[in-house]
């Protein structure tokens, strides 16, 4: 009876949480957009969500590209196949590391900040106060943040991959002596726009949707106390990271498996 009851309770909580999340998202997004007010709000959020994540994305992208080149080179050179360094790095970044790692970093940097900010606005009654001023907080506060996250992450993922490839070029070509022409041409030979770049972009769009959704929902739904906010922030990072990894597997299976 006891474990069964626990299972039932958790299932019900999960379903009702999911329902609330859907309602939050739909009521934030389904309305006539108002460009005069909406665009400045969106810009502001693009700044705090996207621009503020730029540094961490560029630095990590560069390092990951450099490490990939270093590791890949030592393995490939054993087969005399260091010419394949370019495609190896590019394919790893475009298909997997770019979308996934930038989504994880985004969840840690921007997702947690979104949750904490919205949670704090809730705890300090700012959301309530908007509502009493006849301004819908879902449209005014939640919607621009969602769109900003949704737009930012694919761009960040592209920047991540690009910087990663440049980092790999730095290590592979400038330090380890792989021929620059070989590096680029073999890469161009092996990387396909539809299969690799487009699929990577699709992945990062899906991740952007999921991570931002979790972040805004957790903030909006959190218990309005300091413990509540900190719990919500943690669970934003944990849940969105796990979901990104799980979804990555599913998407990869759909895209690349025969």
């Amino acid at each position: 009876m006891w474990p069964l009851q626990l299972l039932g309770r958790n299932t019900l909580a999960l379903i009702s949480g999911l329902g609330r999340a859907v309602i939050v998202l739909l009521s934030a997004l389904l309305h006539k957009p108002n460009p005069r007010k909406g665009i400045p709000l969106l810009l502001q959020q693009l700044y705090s969500v996207g621009v503020m994540s730029l540094i961490i994305i560029i630095v990590s992208g560069g390092f990951i590209g450099m490490v990939l080149a270093l590791q890949g080179y030592t393995i490939l050179v054993g087969y005399g196949a260091e010419a394949s360094l370019g495609p190896m790095v590019a394919l790893s970044l475009l298909r997997e590391l770019g979308p996934v790692v930038s989504a994880l970093l985004f969840a840690g940097r921007a997702g947690s900040a979104l949750t904490a900010e919205i949670g704090l606005m809730k705890a300090t009654e700012q959301l309530s106060s908007l509502e009493m001023m006849a301004v819908d907080p879902l449209r005014r506060v939640i919607a621009p943040r969602f769109w900003a996250g949704f737009i930012s992450l694919p761009l960040l993922a592209a920047i991540f991959s690009m910087v990663g490839i440049l980092g790999a070029h730095l290590v592979g070509v400038d330090w380890l002596g792989v021929d620059a022409g070989t590096f680029w041409s073999v890469m161009q030979d092996q990387v396909d726009f539809n299969k690799d770049i487009l699929n990577g972009i699709i992945k990062s769009v899906v991740f952007a949707f999921v991570v931002t959704w979790i972040a805004i929902y957790k903030g909006y739904d959190c218990e309005p106390t300091s413990e509540g906010i900190s719990r919500a922030t943690t669970s934003t990072v944990v849940q969105s990271s796990l979901l990104v990894l799980a979804l990555d597997f599913i998407l990869t299976a759909l895209m690349f498996a025969r």
Binding site: L94, L155, A158, V191, I197
Partner: peptide, 14 residues
């Protein structure tokens, strides 16, 4: 971001 996308599609992919 757009420059990165362009570079990826033009310089990295065939």
């Amino acid at each position: 971001g757009i420059a990165a996308l362009l570079m990826l599609s033009l310089k990295v992919a065939n």
